[in-house]
Design a protein around this nucleic acid. Structure first.
Length: 322
RNA sequence: GCUGAGGUGCCGGAGUGGACAAUCGGACUUGUCUGUAAAACAAGCGCUCGAAAGGGCUACCUAGGUUCGAAUCCUAGCCUCAGCA
């Protein structure tokens, strides 16, 4: 069941630069990734206006309706730009990489059809990967019965079950995944599905010509930017949490700290401190993921000329089409 | 100023004579990663020698003391909190 799709293709005045006109249409995809608070969206907007592109967010929390300040949605302030893949899901319903991949791919196809450059921007590594690599298992659906059955099972039970039905898979898992109930259940789920379904060649589009840019910054600078951003978002975020009636199904950084503040359990100072710490830890986890992804062109945002550098590099990629 | 409670590692908070370098959470560090990914999970987390097993050193406010042995008992001091002045 797909969430409601945002309306595609509003008639937009073409912003195509002279450069892009004769070469759109060859399945090019630009990706901007990196940890939170590095200014990805700002850069992407610049690139979009330079090369005639449209942004597609790759963020597992900005897909939800609402909580704009808390999840840090940047909305272009003027012009007719918009950012796709914001607000496509309900806070109270489960979302997934699979849904993300399907929705975003449609949007990307549509952007291409309009001869524009799709620019994927975001910090959710797996979501980006789902668009740049064919991931063969993500569309195997969850098995509700199975998840219910094993939901609270001790991990030993899950481990034994997986060993029993798929020794090979078990042996291929690393130590941390072997202890991870969520991954164990998923592995069992996949094995079961495969046993009753022939190999499924889900039509995953061939990746095409992808150019991936990563933004990076020294941790102290990131901490500083996170701190400031939390401060400026605080009032709005508090209001948002106050107005959220149902507990979001997915944890959102800062949410519970603000809730505790509203209940008077912790002080404003501590709530901010907690929120900042969560954002900081998140940024580090993102870096751990991204630094392993090969083929990314990294730029340090402390370098004065980094924007020009990016523009030049993207230009050479986008223009020099063989 | 009197009475009661208490001072434990970055923080919260166990322990109340040996099995304690000190349970447990959080933070922090390093990682894992194909339907929850801002998630979930793993290892580490006083200093030091060692590949490891294991060893050495310094630690539970401070100073003394009792004991074969103290974070744990005693004395004094300093500080904190609650109630009474």
């Amino acid at each position: 069941m797909l969430p409601h799709l945002p309306q595609l293709s509003p008639t937009m005045p073409a912003l195509l630069s002279a450069k892009s006109e004769h070469l759109a249409s060859m399945h090019k995809l630009l990706v901007i990734c990196g940890p939170t608070a590095t200014g990805k969206t700002q850069l992407a907007l610049t690139l979009a206006s330079t090369f005639g592109g449209e942004l597609v967010s790759a963020d597992s929390r900005q897909v939800y309706n609402g909580l704009d300040a808390l999840t840090g949605k940047d909305r272009p302030t003027h012009g007719d730009e918009r950012i796709w893949m914001y607000d496509v899901a309900s806070l109270t319903k489960l979302f997934s990489v699979s849904l993300y991949q399907r929705l975003a791919q449609k949007i990307i196809n549509d952007i291409e059809r309009r001869k524009k450059l799709p620019i994927v921007v975001g910090g959710t590594g797996l979501y980006i990967k789902a668009l740049t690599h064919p991931l063969s298992q993500i569309h195997i659906p969850p098995n509700v019965m199975l998840r219910k059955k094993f939901g609270n099972a001790p991990r030993e039970v899950l481990q034994e079950e997986l060993k029993r039905i798929d020794q090979y898979k078990w042996n291929s898992m690393n130590e941390s995944d072997k202890d991870n109930p969520r991954r164990l259940i998923r592995a069992i789920e996949i094995t079961q599905w495969r046993s009753s379904h022939p190999i499924d060649h889900e039509t995953i589009r061939t990746p095409g010509d992808i150019f991936q840019i990563g933004l990076i910054a020294p941790l102290p600078l990131l901490e500083d930017r996170i701190q400031k951003r939390v401060m400026t978002r605080w009032d709005d975020a508090v209001r948002e949490v106050q107005n959220t009636k149902e507990q979001p199904i997915a944890p959102i950084l800062g949410f519970s700290a603000i809730q505790q503040f509203l209940q008077g359990t912790i002080s404003k100072k501590d709530a901010i401190k907690t929120w900042v710490a969560e954002e900081r830890a998140y940024a580090k986890r993102q870096m751990t993921w991204f630094k392993k992804q090969s083929g990314t062109h990294w730029f340090d945002i402390t370098k004065e000329t980094y924007i020009q550098d990016v523009l030049a590099l993207v230009d050479s990629w986008y223009t020099n089409y063989a």
